[in-house]
Design a protein around this nucleic acid. Structure first.
Lengths: 342, 342
DNA sequence: CTCCCGATGTGAAACGTTTAACATGCCGCA
DNA sequence: TGCGGCATGTTAAACGTTTCACATCGGGAG
C-alpha cells in the first residue's frame, strides 16, 4: 500500500488535482459524471486524505487535548469518556494528557495547542498551563475550558458542581444524623474545589452551632492511600470523630479500609461520606454515601463549550454549574445515644 | 500573539529561513554567533514550530493511537498510563480511542494511522481494525501491536500474560483449598484471553479428577454488572458452587456485592477469586484474591514494541509474555467439612 | 448575431517546515 | 600563487492539500 495522493488519482482520471479535490470535498462544484469517475478511482486506489496536509492548509487539526491529573481515577476517566463521545460526534479526536499532577507535564501538553497539533484544551487542573500576560484577553489564549477546577482566571469558561454547596450538603447530612464530632479528609488544598468544600463544611458546622476541632481536618491528597493515612491519623486522636467527610470516594474507600483493619465498624462506629459517586461506590461494602457528580454532563459540557469556542461561538456565560446530588447509602448511620458516648 | 513562523524570525535576524531552521534544529550546521542570535530572537518572539508542517515534511506525526474497549476500567487505564509514560519519553503523544467495544469505532480510530495523523496503533481488542488481504505481509499494515488480546493474526506483535496458565493457576488455588464445586463467570467469550482462561480452568479441573458442572460456567461480559448477574444465576442453582473464579476483578466485585445482598458470606460461604489485580482489589471488603497482571510492564512493552517498529526495528520475537502472579488475600478460604456439606 | 452568464475545469499560490544542492569566502598548504 | 577543502550561509524543491482567480465553453436572452 504505497501512499496514494490526490496527484495519483488526478493522473489516473485525467483531471487536475484541483478538480479531484473539489470532487471529493465540494461535490457541487463539479459535474456529476466527473464526481462519479473521481470517486470510483479514489475508491479503487484506496485513497485516504493526508490529514496533516489538510490541517496545515486549513489551520485546523481536528484534535483537542484534555489534561487530567490521573486517568486511572474512575471519576476522571468517566469524564474523559463523555468528552470523547461529544468530540467524536463533532468530528474531533481527543488527545489524552495524563499529567500526574505535574505542572511541567501540563505545560507540555498545553503546548500542543500552540504548535497547532490541537485546536483547544480541556483543563482539569487548577493552574493555567501557560503564561498569561497581565491584562491579556482570553481571546488571545488558545481555546480552553476549565473543568471541575478553578484557575483563578474568572474569564475562562468553567464547568463544575457548586463545591461550596456540596460541602454544605454533605456536612448537613452528617449533622442531620446527629453527628457532632465530624472530621474531614480533604483533597489537595491547593485546589479551589477543595477549599470551597472545606468552606462549606465549616459554614455548615458553625451554622449548626458546633465548633470544629482543628485536629479533625486532615489535609492530604485525593487518593485512596491518603484516605488510609487520614483515617489512621484521626483514630489515633484522643477525641475520635464519629463521622468523616472524605473529599473523594477514593479517600473514602481508603478510610473504610483503614477503619476495617483497625476493627472499627462503618457505619456502626464511624459514618463515612464520600464525594464523586464513582461507579463502584454503590457496590462497595458498605455501599458508600456520597455526593454524586454528573460526570457525563460535565464531560459533555466541557467538550461542547470548547468546540463552540473553537468554532467561534464563545459562551455568553463562562461558568456552567451542573447539579450534584446527595446519595444516601449505608456508610452513614444516625448516631444513637450509645455511640455518642464513645 | 499572532502566529510567528520561521519566516518572521528570519526577517528579524536578517538570516534566511534555512539558516534559522538549521540554527534551531541542527546547531552544528551554523556558526555560534548566528545560533545565539537566532535563539534569542526566537525566544523573544515566542516562536513555536508548527508541528503539523514538521510532520508533513518529515512524514512522522509523533502520535500513536491506543484503541481500548473501556477507559473507565481501571485495569485498562493503568495500561494506558504506562503506555503514555513510555511514549512521552520517546517523544510521542498518545491519542486515546475508547471504542466501547464497537468495531465501527475501532476502525474509525485505526484510520488515523492511515491518514498519517498517527504513526502506529496499539490495539487492545481481539479483531483487526482494518481489512487485511489474505497473504498481505504484516509490513504492509500500519505499525501495530496487540495488547492483552489475540486477533488470530500470528504475525502481529502481541503482549500479554499466559492466559491459559493464569486459568490453571487460579483454579488450582481453589482446588488446593479443597473446593470441588467451582464455578466460573467468564468475560466476553469472543476473546482469546477468555477462551484460554477457560481452557486452563477445564484442564485444571479434569487433572484434579473433578468434572465441571455445565451450569457452573456462566458466559457474560467483563463488567461489574455481569458479575452481579452471574452470581445471582449461580446461587439460584440447586447445586450451588462453593467457589467462583471470576475472569476480571470487576466481575468479582459484582459477584461479591450480589452475594452480600443475598446474605451469603465471602469467603465464609463462597470463595471468590478475580483476575487483573486492579488497585482497589486489595482494599475491597474482603480483600480480593486475584491473578495480578503487571499493567505497567504490559503498557511499557506495548509502547516500546510499537515505537521500535515505527523506528524500523521490528521485534524478532512477536509474542511477549509477561508474568502474572497469584495474590492470595481474604476472599478465598480453605473449605472445611461443615461448609462442604451445604 | 452578440453578449453575458452559469457551469465546469485548471493553474498556481499558499500553509510552515526540512533538506539536498549549491554558492561564497577564507585558510592553509604545496 | 593557486587550489582543495572547510565553515557558513542560501536557494529552492518538496510534503499533500485547499482555494482564489481565471479560462473555457455552450446556451439563452435580446
Amino acid at each position: 500500500m504505497a501512499k496514494v495522493g490526490l496527484k495519483d488519482i488526478a493522473a489516473q482520471t485525467g483531471f487536475s488535482i484541483a478538480t479531484v479535490s473539489h470532487a471529493l470535498r465540494n461535490p457541487d462544484r463539479v459535474a456529476d459524471a466527473t464526481r462519479k469517475k473521481v470517486l470510483a478511482a479514489a475508491e479503487a486506489a484506496g485513497y485516504t486524505p493526508n490529514n496533516l496536509a489538510v490541517s496545515l492548509r486549513t489551520a485546523r487539526s481536528g484534535n483537542i487535548v484534555v489534561i487530567i491529573p490521573d486517568i486511572a481515577d474512575s471519576h476522571n476517566s468517566n469524564i474523559i469518556k463523555a468528552i470523547e463521545k461529544v468530540a467524536r460526534e463533532r468530528g474531533y479526536s481527543v488527545l489524552l494528557g495524563d499529567s500526574q499532577g505535574s505542572e511541567k507535564r501540563e505545560r507540555e501538553f498545553a503546548r500542543m495547542a500552540r504548535t497547532r497539533q490541537a485546536d483547544g484544551v480541556i483543563l482539569m487542573s487548577h493552574r493555567l498551563p501557560f503564561d498569561r500576560k497581565p491584562g491579556e484577553p482570553v481571546s488571545k489564549l488558545p481555546p480552553i475550558v476549565n473543568g471541575c477546577e478553578y484557575t483563578g482566571h474568572d474569564d475562562l469558561p468553567q464547568i463544575g458542581i457548586d463545591d461550596y454547596q456540596a460541602g454544605l450538603d454533605a456536612t448537613r447530612h452528617l449533622l442531620d444524623y446527629g453527628h457532632r464530632q465530624i472530621a474531614v479528609i480533604t483533597g489537595d488544598i491547593e485546589t479551589h474545589s477543595t477549599r470551597e468544600r472545606l468552606r462549606g463544611f465549616n459554614d455548615a458546622m458553625t451554622a449548626a452551632g458546633v465548633t470544629v476541632n482543628d485536629d479533625h481536618v486532615i489535609q492530604l491528597g485525593y487518593t485512596l492511600e491518603d484516605g488510609i493515612a487520614g483515617a489512621q491519623q484521626l483514630m489515633a486522636l484522643p477525641s475520635r470523630p464519629s463521622a468523616i467527610f472524605c473529599f473523594s470516594d477514593e479517600i473514602a474507600f481508603g478510610a473504610m479500609y483503614a477503619l476495617r483493619e483497625m476493627g472499627i465498624d462503618v457505619p456502626g462506629d464511624v459514618s463515612i461520606i464520600g464525594c464523586d459517586n464513582i461507579p463502584l461506590a454503590r457496590y462497595f461494602s458498605p455501599p458508600l454515601t456520597t455526593i454524586a457528580q454528573p460526570t457525563a454532563e460535565i464531560g459533555a459540557a466541557c467538550a461542547t463549550l470548547l468546540l463552540d469556542i473553537i468554532d467561534g461561538n464563545p459562551p455568553t456565560e463562562p461558568r456552567v454549574v451542573v447539579p450534584h446530588e446527595l446519595k444516601i447509602r449505608e456508610s452513614t448511620r444516625r448516631l444513637d445515644a450509645s455511640a455518642a458516648n464513645r
